[in-house]
Computed example of a mutant assay.
Amino acid sequence: MGFSADWLALREPADIAARDAGLLAGAVAAAGADPVILDLGCGTGSTLRTLAPHLPAHARWHLVDNDPALLERAATEAPGRAETHALDLRDLDALPLEGVTLVTASALLDLMPAPWIAALAAHLAKAGLPFYGALSYDGAMTWDPAFPEDAQITRAFNDHQRGDKGLGPALGPDAATRAAAIFAAAGFRVTEGDSPWRLDAETAPLQRALLEGIAGAAAETGAVGAAAWGDRRAAAAADSLCVIGHRDLLALPARQP
């Protein structure tokens, strides 16, 4: 399970624009006056770059990923204040929770199975730590202009997203609602918000890269005409409006550490 630095850079502006502003502010408040943030699946540091302008300059970070190259890139965003951890997220016991005030994850929960999210919630409940999970794909895709095949391709892509990404069958488009229920059952106070991508002519390169991935995934499920649909959509990207649904959540523990 991993993503290229090029893809992460391409999507970052859309991610930043999409985040629910209220939940981001709530996450910053939950991090406290002396923030120590543990970012799961940090990639090149997008969450760090997004939160940093809202945090005190002395905020410290624990960055977790399984890709050393991405970790090295992410650490440059907070020189002297970021510690990297090349970890397999299967091993939640290895997470460096000591001294942490907030745990974050962006575009990660939809790749994970329900038991993993439940185990994470249990770990954080025991530690009394808040969790900010942003940008979970929720299964909704709309396009303007619409094509007759849109609904079929969306269904096929969503089925593909529920496949095993390395830790068991992923929740995919069900992640946002399931994660909220899991954290609530673990005793957290959960707040949710929409964080959709809104893509237009200015983001045509992201649309085209996204379409390549959607069409390829749909084709793997056996969707007839997926490649042709992707080609037509990519050709029209400069004249299309696209909304890709995501959800954010903020889970605050019943007790503080």
Rank of each mutant, 00 (worst) to 15 (best):
145 P>D: 06
168 G>V: 04
129 L>S: 13
189 R>A: 15
137 Y>H: 05
119 A>R: 14
156 A>Q: 02
185 A>F: 03
126 K>G: 13
208 R>W: 09
184 A>P: 02
198 R>D: 15
197 W>E: 10
165 K>R: 02
165 K>F: 00
176 A>C: 00
171 L>T: 03
197 W>F: 08
180 A>C: 03
146 A>E: 14
162 R>N: 01
113 P>Q: 05
202 E>Q: 14
193 G>E: 13
198 R>A: 15
132 Y>M: 12
139 G>R: 06
204 A>I: 06
127 A>Y: 03
158 N>F: 01
176 A>L: 01
151 A>I: 13
151 A>H: 14
157 F>Q: 09
156 A>F: 00
163 G>V: 02
163 G>A: 12
121 A>Q: 04
196 P>M: 07
198 R>C: 15
207 Q>H: 05
162 R>F: 00
115 P>G: 09
168 G>A: 06
168 G>T: 05
115 P>R: 06
185 A>L: 04
192 E>F: 00
167 L>M: 06
175 A>S: 11
166 G>E: 13
113 P>N: 02
161 Q>L: 02
202 E>A: 14
200 D>G: 14
118 A>E: 14
196 P>L: 06
120 L>H: 09
182 I>V: 12
123 H>N: 08
124 L>S: 08
176 A>W: 04
159 D>V: 06
196 P>K: 03
197 W>N: 11
118 A>C: 10
142 T>L: 02
120 L>I: 08
135 L>G: 05
181 A>T: 10
145 P>N: 09
165 K>N: 02
141 M>E: 14
114 A>R: 02
207 Q>L: 05
188 F>V: 13
197 W>T: 09
170 A>E: 01
121 A>E: 01
157 F>Y: 13
140 A>I: 10
185 A>S: 11
186 A>N: 04
152 Q>A: 15
146 A>C: 13
196 P>Q: 10
118 A>R: 10
178 R>W: 04
158 N>K: 00
198 R>W: 11
151 A>Y: 14
177 T>D: 15
134 A>M: 04
141 M>R: 15
114 A>V: 00
187 G>H: 04
172 G>V: 02
208 R>Y: 06
117 I>E: 01
185 A>E: 15
188 F>P: 15
180 A>R: 01
199 L>H: 08
152 Q>E: 15
178 R>N: 00
128 G>F: 10
206 L>G: 04
199 L>G: 08
116 W>K: 05
169 P>C: 03
125 A>E: 11
145 P>A: 13
168 G>D: 03
134 A>V: 08
139 G>D: 07
203 T>W: 09
116 W>E: 05
199 L>K: 05
170 A>C: 02
144 D>V: 11
127 A>R: 10
204 A>M: 07
150 D>F: 07
139 G>S: 11
147 F>Q: 15
187 G>D: 04
174 D>Q: 11
123 H>T: 12
174 D>N: 12
203 T>A: 12
150 D>N: 02
167 L>C: 00
172 G>R: 07
187 G>R: 03
155 R>P: 05
119 A>C: 08
205 P>Q: 08
208 R>V: 15
143 W>R: 15
144 D>F: 08
125 A>P: 10
153 I>Q: 07
203 T>M: 12
141 M>Y: 14
122 A>H: 05
206 L>W: 09
190 V>L: 02
172 G>E: 05
204 A>N: 07
142 T>S: 09
157 F>D: 07
203 T>V: 06
201 A>L: 04
179 A>C: 09
